[in-house]
Design a protein around this nucleic acid. Structure first.
Lengths: 111, 111
DNA sequence: TCGATATGTAAGTTGACACTTTCGTAAGTG
DNA sequence: CACTTACGAAAGTGTCAACTTACATATCGA
């Protein structure tokens, strides 16, 4: 998970994921979409693979990559829970503040 | 946006955001939650601030930090659209594949 | 088997990054 | 006016990351 979040922090890798999201593509085809050299893309693919974000399948001399929807779903769920949990706490804190503010016996002074 | 996504890739920074999500905290108070030195946290706070993820307010000698819900919402929306757009394309691709597969005049061979 | 194609790996470079220690500075306190 | 508190900024360090060029490896076709 930690690896996944670090992996998508890199713009090239987000773009790679997008490319192989719908279609399985060979490493060379992927590399053709970028300005950097092919080995650079190869390394990005390795990072993505080690983070579990893409799968690799060999066919002859080619290596076909594809985004793994399951791992994307996991990453997404992780972030969702991060936002949601904190948002929940924020609301809760706001409500408590509200409570205290409306209680007569305790004036709320600005710090 | 790019800065924001890079900012949250760092675990300490995600934890800092969580700390000041509900309560405004001084830099020193934040630092007390971590093993690293106070200046290290100061630097993380600068990164977060430059990414727009936290606000800074001075009060006497203290500097109070708080997570900015709006920027979090933006980041969240960016990621949502990233997942959603691609998921949409994936479904669309699957449907087209389905179409092709059921048409009689065109056998689908596994490459 | 020879050559072309497709690709990962190795090694080196550069810059960013997370951290530390040291120092400067502004605001309260006696 | 010292002295303390609460910080950020500066400078130095080790590590990691993204990239390059050069090389090794595997497969396919003639």
């Amino acid at each position: 998970m930690e690896a996944a979040i670090r992996a998508i922090a890199e713009p090239h890798r987000r773009e790679i994921l997008r490319l192989v999201w719908t279609a399985e593509l060979a490493a060379g085809e992927i590399a053709r979409h970028f300005d950097v050299t092919r080995p650079a893309i190869s390394q990005h693919l390795r990072v993505l693979k080690e983070a579990g974000l893409v799968s690799e399948r060999r066919n002859g001399t080619k290596r076909l990559y594809r985004t793994r929807p399951e791992s994307i779903a996991e990453l997404r769920a992780y972030l969702e829970s991060y936002w949601d949990e904190n948002l929940r706490l924020l609301k809760q804190a706001a409500e408590q503040e509200e409570q205290r503010g409306t209680r007569r016996d305790r004036r709320h002074k600005g710090d």
